[in-house]
C-alpha cells in the first residue's frame, strides 16, 4: 500500500465516521437524559470533520483527487436508542483507529505525526463511548 492509498483509506473512514456521528447525533438529540452522550457526539463529529479537512488538504497537496463521501452508509446494526448510539460510537472509533494505525506504517514525518495523533484521539473516544482499554488499540482486530 502506498502512502497516498493509506491517506485515501483514512479519508474514506472519516467520511463514514461523520455520517455515523450524524446518525447517532440525531437519535441522541431525542433523549433528554443523554446530555453527556450528546456532548461526546458533538465533540466526535467536530473532530472527525477536522480530520477529514486535514486529510483532504494532504491528498490535494499530493496532486490527487480526494476520495468523495458516499451519499449514504448502511449502519452495521439498527440505531434505535441511546445504547445503540454508544455501541455505534465505539464501533466507529474502533474502526477509525485501525485505519489510522495502518496508515502510520505507510507514512513519515509530519504526515505520520498527524495520523498517529488521530489514532490516539480515536482510541480515547472509543473508551469514552464505553469501550475497553486495549494494550494496542488500532492494531487489534485490524
Amino acid at each position: 500500500m502506498t502512502a497516498l492509498a493509506a491517506l485515501q483509506d483514512c479519508l474514506a473512514a472519516e467520511h463514514a465516521a461523520i455520517y455515523g456521528y450524524g446518525v447517532l447525533g440525531g437519535v441522541l438529540g431525542g433523549d433528554n437524559n443523554a446530555a453527556s452522550d450528546q456532548a461526546l457526539a458533538t465533540a466526535g463529529y467536530v473532530a472527525h470533520r477536522t480530520r477529514r479537512d486535514e486529510l483532504t488538504a494532504l491528498i490535494t497537496g499530493l496532486d490527487a483527487d480526494p476520495v468523495p463521501a458516499e451519499p449514504a452508509y448502511a449502519t452495521p446494526f439498527p440505531i434505535t436508542g441511546t445504547p445503540d448510539c454508544r455501541r455505534l460510537g465505539r464501533h466507529i472509533e474502533h474502526r477509525t483507529a485501525a485505519v489510522y494505525s495502518f496508515a502510520v506504517a505507510e507514512t513519515v514525518r509530519g504526515t505520520r505525526r498527524m495520523l498517529a495523533s488521530a489514532l490516539l484521539d480515536a482510541a480515547r473516544r472509543e473508551v469514552r463511548w464505553g469501550g475497553e482499554a486495549q494494550a494496542f488499540p488500532g492494531v487489534t482486530d485490524s
Binding site: 448502511a74 449502519t75 439498527p78 436508542g81 445504547p83 445503540d84 455501541r87 465505539r90 485501525a98
Partner: peptide
C-alpha cells in the same frame, strides 16, 4: 442505495464491544 459501511475493512467486523442489543427481540 446505501454504500457499504466503511468499505472493505468493515467486512470482517465483529462486535466484541456490545453491551446490549437494543431494539431487538
Amino acid at each position: 442505495m446505501q454504500a457499504r459501511w466503511y468499505g472493505r475493512w468493515m467486512q470482517a467486523a465483529a462486535f466484541d464491544d456490545d453491551k446490549g442489543p437494543g431494539g431487538v427481540s
